[in-house]
Design a protein around this nucleic acid. Structure first.
Lengths: 204, 204
DNA sequence: CCGCAAACTAGAACAGATTCTAATTGGTGT
DNA sequence: ACACCAATTAGAATCTGTTCTAGTTTGCGG
């Protein structure tokens, strides 16, 4: 029986048990090893034994840090989202309208994922299949709210605003999946995202 | 290496090699056994060995009919969608507006899925994973177009109409996933679907 | 009826995720 | 220095999807 803890290794490392520096670094090494392997042959190449070996850690230890492979995948995805967030902070979307900025963010993320199709495919699918509760959807929705409103945070937003941002994120994931399996071109995604955004975000 | 054939056991059994009656019945028995197991403990309980045993065939034979577990799950999903379609034909949605009818259909499907949460989980996840080789997304979008326009078929619809119906289907799937993860109640889904539909389908 | 190819069967074998075990190490309080 | 507990390790063991093997049965054209 897989238990799949809800622990997620994002940058927000707020609660739970104390964690020493060496433990944090060890965790980091593991995630890096995993990401490196996954960016080659996808999740298939990211075998637990191999990850443990590359990270210089016993298999049991790997499982102490990440109770299931999915938890590890989630951690890798978390890092990718961190990257996207900092990229957006560095160079915020410049479009004039809220919808335009949201589309900017989504298409930038799309291009990022397209650069490593193996990794992207594996990660997106794994996440969808995951029983783990991932902060993925909310993080994406929050990101959209932040760029489309004026720095609106996920918590401050009204219920309807959150619904709509969440729906747009859902549409995006759906389109990504279609792309990853060769049923969408980049341009088609852009068109559909624009269409959906213009309707879903019409009036913040 | 998983190959995951494109064979799908929907009612449309058009092309490919000839298939005798006994083969078809055997296939049916397998799918039934699989569905029965899945409706208990989900995909986990639907172990290939167990399915084979229940269906009264050898493991090798099961793999002859369904080259991978995913192919089997896809077949089960196909049956469920058939069910939904005929249910809608029997009792068409009665709402006054196109959006209302679309919401009707989606929420009816949602209730159907909620009745067998374990099965629903397996079903939805595989629906997403298997869209590679099955027109499930298009089938759902087509269904929505048919009830929201006046019997508009997927092929007749304009590109934008298909985009929008597809997006709504995407949002619905997304919400279902969240529900299966215990992050949505039925009412929340209804609200979000209504919100999304009213915007995405505003003016057919 | 004969022979052959495809379908079928029981069961072993293999692969990778996950769990378990027994021994070792490292840090901490006394 | 000592006792002790949590973290770690190497490796065996288990579980389930998938593949392989070797023999058996079935349907069909001649």
């Amino acid at each position: 029986m897989r238990t799949s803890s809800a622990t997620v290794a994002t940058s927000s490392d707020g609660e739970g048990s104390v964690r020493t520096r060496s433990q944090t670094q060890r965790r980091k090494r593991i995630v890096q090893a995993a990401a490196a392997l996954a960016s080659r042959g996808g999740v298939e190449a990211m075998q637990m034994r191999t990850v443990a070996e590359r990270a210089g850690v016993a298999l049991g230890t790997l499982y102490r840090y990440f109770p299931s492979k999915m938890d590890l995948v989630v951690a890798v995805v978390g890092e990718e989202i961190d990257l996207l967030e900092s990229s957006i902070e560095r160079r915020p979307p410049g479009a004039a309208t809220p919808e335009g900025r949201a589309v900017d963010v989504l298409m930038r993320a799309t291009r990022g994922l397209m650069r490593e199709p193996e990794l992207a495919d594996a990660l997106i699918r794994s996440l969808i299949m995951a029983e783990v509760q991932t902060p993925f959807g909310d993080r994406m929705a929050g990101l959209l709210l932040r760029v489309s409103g004026e720095g609106l945070s996920f918590e401050q937003a009204s219920e309807e605003q959150r619904d709509l941002a969440g729906s747009l994120a859902g549409v995006w994931v759906h389109e990504l999946l279609e792309m990853l399996r060769g049923r969408r071109t980049y341009d088609q995604i852009q068109r559909r995202i624009e269409t959906a955004a213009s309707r879903l975000l019409a009036d913040l």
